[in-house]
Design a protein around this nucleic acid. Structure first.
Lengths: 197, 197
DNA sequence: GTCTATACCGTGATAGAC
DNA sequence: GTCTATCACGGTATAGAC
C-alpha cells in the first residue's frame, strides 16, 4: 500500500452533479462556464469530461432527479385515497415539502426555459404533473369542497405558482422550517388571509 | 427631397429595447447573443452599438422600466388612503395588473439573478418594494383585518410569490384577461379556496 | 444609420502524457 | 483520474467606409 493518500476517486458523476447544480443556481445554466464548474469542483475542465458527457448532461441529471421526486408524491397513499379535496391538499403540501427537501434540483428545474432538447423534455414532464394536479382540483370542485366560482385550471395554475415561488427565497439554513412554509402555504390556499368567523 | 424612401431612423433605443426584451425572455439574457438580437431587429450586430452601449444597457433599460411601473402603484391614492387591509388588497391587485400590462419587462425583471451590477441594483429595488408591501400587511394584521397566526413577512413573501408567478404562464393573447387573473388572485389571497359559510 | 471587416477573448470540448 | 496544451468556434465590441 502506498504511504501517501491517493488523490484518485475524488469525484463521481454524483459529486460533480451536486457541485454543478449549486453553481447553476447562482450563475444560471447559460451563464455558467465549464471553467467555473471546474474551479468549484477543484479539478480542471478536461477532468469533468472524464465523468460526464458535458454541461447539458449535468442539467439532464439534475432536472430528472427533481421531476422523479415530484412524481413520486403523486403515487403515495395520501394522493390516491380519500376525498379529492384532501388528496389535493396532500399534494400541495407534499409538493411544497419536496421542493424544500430537494431545493437545488427543483430550483434548477423551475428555471428551465426550453432552449435545448433536455429542457423541452423537462417542461413536458412538468406540464404532465400540473395536469394531474389540475384534475384533482377539478374533482374537488365537482364535489363542492372547493369554490366553484373560479376556473379550476386558473386555480391550479395559481396554486402551483405559489408553491413554486417558494424556491425563489427559501433557504434551508434560514429561520423558517419546511414544515412552517408548508403549513402557511396550505392554510393560505385553503382559507385565505382574511379571518374566518 | 429624395424620390426613394429613406431607410434611416428604422431603429431607436426604444424600438431596439422592445425587440431585445422579447428575445431575452425566450432565450434568456445570458443565452442571447448580439447576433440573435441583430437578426431579430433586422440590422447587423455593429449597428446595435450605434443605439445602445451594449447588451447590458438593454437589460438596464428594461428592468428600470419594470421597476418604475411597480413603484408607481405604491404612490397612487388606493395605496395611500384607507384602512391598511384595503391598501394591501389594492397593491396586490394593482401589482398583478401592472405585471400583466407590462408583461415582457416585468418578466425579465423577475428572472434577474444578480450576476452583474445592473442585476444587483434591480434586486435591491425589488427588495425595497417587497419591504414596503410587507409593512402594509403587518399594519393590516395589527388592526385585526388579516389573520395573525401566520408571520406577516412569510405572508408577504407568499403573496408576492403568487403574484410574480403569473409571469410564468400568462399570455396577453390567451383566453384569460388581466382583470380575471387579478380578481381570482385577490380572491384566493383574501378568502382561500374553501367555500365560506 | 447601417454596413463590412476585424480585433480580441472566453467558450465547450479533445488529445495524449503521467 | 487528473493534468497541460490546444483546437475550432462564437462571443462582445470597435474601426472606418458609404
Amino acid at each position: 500500500m502506498p504511504a501517501v493518500a491517493k488523490r484518485a476517486d475524488r469525484h463521481t458523476p454524483e459529486s460533480l452533479l451536486a457541485v454543478a447544480v449549486d453553481v447553476f443556481n447562482v450563475r444560471g445554466y447559460d451563464g455558467t462556464s465549464m471553467e467555473e464548474l471546474a474551479k468549484a469542483a477543484g479539478i480542471t475542465k478536461s477532468s469533468i469530461y472524464h465523468h460526464v458527457a458535458g454541461k447539458e448532461e449535468l442539467l439532464r441529471l439534475a432536472v430528472t432527479r427533481a421531476l422523479d421526486g415530484l412524481f413520486a408524491a403523486l403515487d403515495e397513499p395520501g394522493a390516491l385515497q380519500g376525498p379529492p379535496v384532501e388528496r389535493f391538499a396532500y399534494v400541495v403540501r407534499r409538493t411544497c415539502l419536496e421542493l424544500v427537501r430537494n431545493l437545488p434540483y427543483v430550483t434548477l428545474l423551475l428555471r428551465v426555459r426550453g432552449n435545448t432538447e433536455t429542457e423541452r423534455d423537462a417542461l413536458e414532464r412538468r406540464r404532465e404533473f400540473d395536469h394531474r394536479v389540475a384534475e384533482l382540483a377539478a374533482a374537488a370542485v365537482a364535489e363542492g369542497d372547493l369554490r366553484a366560482d373560479v376556473d379550476p385550471r386558473l386555480t391550479a395554475r395559481l396554486v402551483f405558482g405559489l408553491v413554486n415561488s417558494v424556491a425563489e427565497w427559501y433557504r434551508p439554513d434560514g429561520p423558517v422550517s419546511g414544515d412552517t412554509v408548508a403549513d402557511a402555504l396550505s392554510s393560505l390556499v385553503l382559507d385565505g388571509l382574511r379571518p374566518r368567523g
